[in-house]
Write a protein that binds this DNA or RNA. Structure first.
Length: 633
RNA sequence: GCCGGUGUAGCUCAGUAGGUAGAGCAGCUGACUUGUAAUCAGAAGGUCGAGGGUUCAAUUCCUUUCGCCGGCACCA
């Protein structure tokens, strides 16, 4: 007698061993049809799994969230099967589930073309139609290696060879295709109902740039067509928000061949920048930061002392003059230490908080550049805190508060926190790393903040806390960072006089709330889709006249607003009002001011918001009050 | 940096099986004087990313190179 406990705590008794599918059938035929897998004592299993002992069972159907991963994994196999049928010379490697879909990497004598992908996707649909049963089989390591070696799948052999000896290996077969896989999978190919191949790309074997480059095919897969369409719509939306397109349409900035990875900020883009920079300036001064400015180009010897020359020499821009080598600064911290080093510092002076909007250059690999999100010249809302070990926790807490305070102003309320610990390539001994990692973790825990651990992701000089905000499409952007650096102050000779009269080396915290302003503004553009809130809008209002007659009145309204500090535009061209409204609406101007004869007569203005709302007429004074109150909120 | 794609007017894009290119919008000129998302007309606008090669002839073919796009790798 076998007892199977179901999620509603009811218990079903069976005379003999049976599969998960059999259990589903015993409940209802339609449930059996919908079942994709089962969770036996919390472990996911195929529907063909044989239940031969008492257990709890939760049937996984299309409706369950966990079904999605199974479908996607099966879609990856489906892709591999189609590729093997069309290109028998291709070797399969790995095909995991990723966010929103899956990919599969192949080794092939040539790159796949977009035309190939069309054929592959078509073949995948054919295989789905033919409803091939997906069967699981267990094999010994030796047999599995022998099998894949016999069909010439060298990568699979390599993968199996790396798997521990005592692991049971499972193979999944569907029609003419067999793949090594942990599973589980859907019971047959017809269960994969909604998928689409999305991208073609090169990818290194095992993610290592020293290895062969494989052909990666990306796809997305969903429970049904509605979900797939919904996903594709969101992708379209993301494309519509692309900061490179909006940046061009709104005339915010441009980039050109002569300066790859650098931004030419236009007046309108720079207006946004200034607002963001001023906001940071206000907020950090409340937290006791002092702003300063340090040189752009600094002698090589400083970078050698700081460790950058050996650690990041290749990605620093250099120059030289009169037999001296210089680096164009890739970061501000060494210079901040040089400022700290001027004059004796007492423990009474600490903590000292320096801030700088310093322009930094890093020679990022060409392939990594992306609009204004990843650039070679950037400015961070950078800052460095010099403090004692006792002050560390308090400073970390204070900074965490600052980050949340500022993100909230932009409407980012969902923030993911990550703690990155010691990387392989690092300076400083292990006791430094032990204590500093603990200190950061304590700061987070004292604030009851949840965080994920990222082992090996720390900076070469110390561990860090990273703050990733979520935009309105749910995408994560890592912006804020707090990095503990117990090494650099010592390397550059920073000291303070302690209470007992001895010289001590201060701790340093590198911190930024927004990170690179270029990137942060890129995030803002995509988050708001160009519809900036009034305080950030490059043009806050546009004055439009109906016809030539009202031009002088329109000019006076424009001048009045401009003189009161609002960013304003005037259009008194000989165009119809509909044309002017369309133009300014496309430029996402929050308020359009329409001036016709009526307005002159009543000494008012008529307002239209960028979303089309007609706000009727009011006096200019009333409008300015309205703007003022919107700016404060 | 690596793999693949791509580069034509200010913008969005078409085109040439090798014979130095075309549309819409914008800009310019003119007419119209307009009431809430594109008024009409005219003229003009291009070393077809850059260098080299093949050819009588290259924007088109070959090659080198640069930028951009999608990934991978990288991201102090």
């Amino acid at each position: 007698m076998i007892q199977v406990k179901l999620p509603d705590n009811s218990i079903k008794n069976f005379e003999q061993a049976l599969t998960i599918l059999d259990v589903a059938k015993s409940i209802s035929p339609s449930l059996a049809k919908a079942t994709l897998a089962g969770r036996i004592n919390e472990e996911l299993k195929d529907v063909s799994y044989l239940i031969d002992h008492d257990c709890s069972l939760k049937l996984v159907t299309e409706k369950d969230n966990e079904a999605l991963d199974i479908i996607r994994h099966s879609a990856a196999h489906l892709l591999a099967q189609a590729v093997k049928q069309l290109f028998p010379g291709a070797q399969v490697t790995i095909g995991p589930v990723i966010e929103n879909g899956f990919f599969y990497d192949f080794s092939y004598e040539r790159a796949f073309t977009p035309e190939d992908v069309v054929l592959i996707e078509k073949r995948m649909h054919d295989i789905v139609k033919s409803n091939q049963i997906i069967e699981r089989k267990e094999l010994s390591r030796e047999d599995a290696i022998a099998y894949f070696a016999s069909i010439g799948e060298k990568y699979k052999v390599e993968i199996i060879s790396a798997i521990a000896n005592d692991q049971v290996l499972s193979l999944y077969t569907q029609g003419d295709f067999t793949d090594l896989c942990r599973g589980p999978h859907v019971p047959s190919t017809s269960k994969i109902k909604a998928f689409k191949l999305t991208k073609l790309a090169g990818a290194y074997w095992r993610g290592d740039s020293k290895n062969e480059m494989l052909q990666r095919i990306y796809g997305t897969a969903w429970r049904n067509k509605e979900e797939l369409d919904n996903y594709l719509t969101i992708q379209e939306e993301a494309k519509r928000r692309d900061h490179r397109i909006i940046g061009k349409n709104l005339d915010l900035f441009h980039q050109q061949d002569e300066a790859p990875g650098m931004i030419f900020w236009h007046p309108k883009g720079w207006a946004i920048w200034q607002e963001v920079e001023q906001l940071i300036r206000r907020e950090i001064s409340l937290d006791g930061y002092q702003e300063l400015k340090t040189p752009q180009i600094v002698d090589r010897s400083l970078w050698e002392k700081s460790g950058h020359w050996s650690m990041f020499g290749e990605s620093m821009f250099t120059t030289h003059s009169e037999n001296r080598d210089y680096a164009i600064k890739p970061m501000n911290c060494p210079c901040h230490i040089l400022v700290f080093n001027q004059g004796l510092k007492s423990y009474r002076d600490l903590p000292i908080r320096f801030a700088e909007f310093g322009s930094c250059h890093r020679n990022e690999p060409s392939g990594s550049l992306h609009g204004i999100m990843r650039v070679r010249n950037f400015i961070q809302d950078d800052g460095h805190i010099f403090c004692t070990e006792d002050q560390l926790q308090n400073e970390a807490q204070k900074f965490i508060d600052l980050v949340f305070r500022i993100y909230k102003i932009f409407g980012f309320n969902d923030v993911a926190i990550k703690l990155s610990t010691r990387p392989e390539k690092r300076v400083g001994d292990d006791s430094f790393w032990d204590s500093s990692e603990t200190a950061l973790a304590n700061a987070l825990e004292s604030k009851n903040l949840k965080y994920t651990l990222q082992p090996g992701e720390g900076a070469f000089y110390g561990p860090k806390i990273e703050f990733a905000l979520k935009d309105c499409l749910g995408r994560e952007w890592q912006c804020g960072t707090l990095q503990l650096d117990p090494n650099m102050p010592g390397r550059l000779g920073a000291t303070y006089i302690a209470e007992d009269g001895s010289k001590k080396v201060p701790l340093m915290l590198h911190r930024a709330v927004l990170g690179s302003l270029e990137r942060f503004i890129g995030v803002l553009i995509e988050h708001y889709a160009g519809d900036f809130p009034l305080w950030l809008a490059p043009i806050q209002a546009a004055v439009l006249n109906i016809s030539e007659k009202q031009a002088p009145y329109a000019v006076s309204v424009y001048n009045n607003l401009k003189n009161n500090g609002f960013r304003c535009e005037l259009d008194i061209s000989n165009e119809k009002i509909g044309y002017k409204i369309r133009e300014k609406t496309l430029l996402k101007v929050p308020y359009l001011i329409i001036i016709g004869d009526k307005e002159i007569e009543n000494n008012t203005i008529t307002l239209r918001k960028r979303d089309g709302t007609d706000m009727g007429s009011m006096t200019l004074e009333q409008f300015q009050e309205l703007l003022g109150s919107e700016l404060i909120s």
